[in-house]
Amino acid sequence: MPGSPTLPAGPGVGYKPQHYNAILTDPAPVTWLEIHAENYMGDGGRPLAQLRHLAERFPISVHGVGLSIGGEGRLDPDHLARLKHLCDWLQPASFSEHLAWSTHDGAFLNDLLPLPYTAATLTRVADHIDELQEALGRRMLLENPSSYLAFAESEMSETDFLRAVADRTGCGLLLDVNNVFVSATNLGLDARAYVADFPIEKVGELHLGGHDEDHDDHGAPLLIDSHGRAVADPVWALLDVVLDRLGPAPLLIEWDTDVPDWPVLAAEAARGQAALTRAGERAAA
């Protein structure tokens, strides 16, 4: 199957099977799709048949959610082989994973769990990314996490950590703008300063998703990265700041729980397209 060399600098969406017919009938303004790698690791049946069909029409981004790149143990060789098998036959336009851990001692916890930003973590993450990129024979994008807490032992900022990982491994970065907003709110940081400090030249893809609002023990806002609603207005505003630094880029809308009908998701993608267009006009002015 001919893969696409790169993702287009336009709006994409996280693919949900219930949108299959709508996407084939009228995908506009969506120009590419992202899948969660682990949902396409069965031996056959509908998921793989749909993916084969979609890949003939759209550039595909494979987004892993289960490799546990930040895990203290070694990467699961079986899972590495499954990722390689998927990327080998699909030839996706992009492969990305998370700065997080999810597996320890053989138990997969199905969540993206946090890491302390220390020299030891940096070495481990960089070694795992080296191993992954070598196995896949391609450059990956590493996504910034959404944080609900911080580690007392952290020695550097998240942006410094990501820059160091990218420098050591040659990997690119996936900048999740909602995660920046969520983490900054939760940890009392300045989201715009985070964006200003982000190694923007490494960014190959942007994510946007919805979050829920809660509070911590002290009544401070605690935002939850739920991907279960529309993107919040302050996150769209932060996207404008990102685009003014970055320029046009592949822009993904994530909506993973309480998934809406296709027109609602397409409207979010159209809002993303409008943001890209406005950023282009600002750059030209």
Binding site: Y148, A152, N186, G188, L189
Partner: peptide, 15 residues
């Protein structure tokens, strides 16, 4: 584990 001000994470961990 702590919040942005260095206080114990408390129910943040519950997330």
């Amino acid at each position: 584990l702590q919040d942005g001000a260095g206080r114990p994470a408390g129910r943040r961990f519950s997330v």
